[in-house]
Write a protein that binds this DNA or RNA. Structure first.
Lengths: 397, 397
DNA sequence: CCGATTGCTGTAAACGTTTCCGGGGAGTCT
DNA sequence: AGACTCCCCGGAAACGTTTACAGCAATCGG
């Protein structure tokens, strides 16, 4: 009572000044004690007591302004509902947490203005660095990336000469792996359910699909190609449209969400999977293993890409002068029940079409966990990484 | 050339001082122009030009220190891999974006220290507010919540008298709805695959399950209860353990991820769903609709809870003096194929067990989209909200 | 033609921290 | 005992903004 009013922040919360005044020391001493550096036993006692009494909690913003770092790292993806980003996020999180930082995620919803706004906002010092996986890229966008005040790593395709750290995969080759597999198991009328063509992955996969078919000497029937967006509902709807006008014996989907939608459409239409129609997704998310039958899927190494991106980012934060780097993670195909069983009357093994290959150096693996039987936790941990020593079999053409 | 070196920030980036010096005006004028408030035409021109030339981008941290706000809001959940949180996040995002703020998400992985650390870090001014959905709550944790320097809203059960904004549901009643439904369709050996009992939802659901069975006069066979965690793999493993020692004719799962695991275990064990075993999940996520057969699920109104939480948070940010409020969202049951068909030889309709009810005023709806047929995008948009006018049918006891 | 209003400008003080630096006291070595 | 080291302390200057305030010129009204 009668005590002189202590200095405090605008909203009434205690500051270092409050604590210092209460403890009868300077703010410098108070700050030192609160940071655990220096201070005599007596000073430490007094400051600790004062801090506890007033309920002092430091203002992280002010601290960051001084220290020029926040200890935060952000990840921006289109849609957290897509399990591929969840896998990527988990991998990133692990690396980031190891460095004592915290990861924040932002879903852009594919709206590019949103993404640019995020860059302008977050990257302007709210975070120490940022990993971003855009599905559309404009010049404006690219410019914002390049001169971000804070290190940025891009996961995904980017203009060849963009001076930005970049981790990518070759989804064109991924598509080729899938087509090759389907052709090898005797499928000929291979359909493709894609995402929007004005997105980078959509465009690349479309081109890859056409090229792969051509390489196997198959004429593309445009009726077998459908486009939706990268979501479950759109995948289902697109597949229904496709089925209404064509009779594929295999279906490749641009991601696993679409593939799940396709599976529903197929079952609802009375087609058996894989007997009537073989189904292959992309991204090899946990969703693929959750389906019945379990889905074959092209792994684009999302977890691995995430891990690498995080490492790149941390290195750049540590040394911003590093030259821009680019890393590539090879795709691989994981074969499961949805495309496992060959057609009842396949061509014999000597099939001329099963010979020529894409020139891909990537692995094709058969998932050991079948749909039935007591498997050993097929979905434990963040998406088991595919075998890392790609066999070069079939790399002739 | 020969120009005097302009002032710049420690890391070589331009600051307001740089721009001001270059434009030959004071920093005040520069700041005003850059914020679009005031300035003569000539000044505006000069400052704009200077800013463009040096590539000025404002330091958001410094701005926030001054303005006491960041325009950011955070959401902390256990696991973004769980679609229930995705639904919640989407609902929150919509509200938050409307207010011109951006939403950041952090996955705590259920590690409570992580959550507390996040509170101490983020909530100390990096964000304007925070929504948090803890599955475990300790006193320490609660204390951190209560005296967060920044508004916090909790989604989920919380001690009755905690002075924190809180949006909850009644998952106990949700469990009751499911049990009632299963009993009404003639099931008697109802199993329960739960999450960890040391979590709030796990404990509540366990208690709710036991109470509901008792209310229907069914003795609980402990062999029919299993515990894992709230993930797919654990759900599958737990169900396999359960099936190895008991023969349920229905299975209630503490969330949809577990239910999907259970579905796999059941199919792998050769049980038909729903003919042999009826299956009901919880949370009514999009995953439930993605399964085949589609899963019945207890909706706990995640999207609605998210929306309300966001509104509460924004209101509190606007007026921190508001008294703590608590809102409740009623659960409802969505019946789909996985529990739709009654047992081949059910008791007649006059079954004494189908009469007594839980006293629940919550809705039971039958999802109009069956597993087959050309449904109208059953999963479009962020999880269609369940019917909002709960019929009071069956609410007798 | 003079006083009042208007509009722009620059100086300086915030915002809440950390940290550099110089002063001073206590201890140790010669 | 004097010089040296070591440690602790407080004052003050950062970090990069925004903004209250006051000075000043120009315009306007009478």
């Amino acid at each position: 009572m009668g005590r002189k009013r202590l200095p405090e922040s605008a909203d009434g919360r205690p500051t270092v000044h409050t604590v210092a005044a209460r403890a009868g020391v300077s703010i410098a001493s108070a700050s030192r004690v609160l940071n655990g550096v220096g201070g005599s036993p007596e000073t430490i006692r007094k400051v600790r007591a004062a801090a506890a009494e007033v309920g002092y909690v430091p203002n992280a913003i002010a601290r960051s302004l001084q220290s020029q770092r926040t200890g935060l790292v952000a990840l921006a993806v289109e849609d957290i509902g897509n399990p591929v980003y969840v896998a990527m996020m988990r991998a990133i999180e692990a690396v980031v947490a190891d460095s004592g930082r915290q990861l924040l995620v932002h879903a852009t919803g594919g709206r590019i203005d949103n993404e640019t706004a995020l860059l302008r906002r977050l990257a302007n010092r709210y975070v120490d660095g940022m990993i971003i996986s855009p599905i559309r890229v404009t010049d404006d966008h690219l410019a914002a990336l390049v001169d971000s005040p804070v290190p940025v790593v891009v996961v995904g395709q980017l203009g060849a000469d963009a001076p930005v750290d970049n981790v990518r995969t070759d989804s064109r080759q991924g598509v080729a792996l899938a087509v090759e597999h389907l052709v090898a198991t005797g499928r000929r009328r291979i359909g493709f359910v894609n995402g929007p063509l004005d997105t980078v992955p959509g465009a690349v996969r479309d081109a890859g699909f056409r090229a792969a078919l051509a390489r196997h000497g198959i004429d593309l029937d445009e009726d077998l190609v459908e486009v939706g967006d990268f979501q479950y509902a759109a995948g289902r709807a697109a597949t229904e449209r496709l089925l209404a006008r064509a009779r594929p014996d295999a279906l490749l989907c641009a991601n696993d969400l679409i593939a799940v939608g396709a599976l529903h459409a197929l079952l609802a239409a009375g087609r058996r999977v894989p007997e009537d129609v073989a189904l292959v997704g992309m991204d090899d998310t946990e969703l693929a293993r959750m389906m019945f039958p379990q889905l074959s899927s092209v792994s684009l190494g999302s977890a691995e890409r995430g891990r690498r991106a995080a490492e790149l980012l941390l290195q750049r934060i540590a040394d911003p002068a590093l030259p821009p780097r680019r890393e590539q993670v090879p795709p691989s195909l994981v074969v499961r029940a949805s495309s496992g069983a060959p057609l009842p009357s396949p061509r014999p093994a000597g099939d001329p079409f099963s010979g020529p290959s894409t020139g891909a150096a990537s692995a094709v693996t058969t998932d050991p966990a079948p749909a039935a039987g007591p498997p050993a936790d097929p979905a434990s941990g963040p998406v088991g990484t595919p075998p890392s020593h790609p066999s070069s079999e079939g790399a002739s053409s």
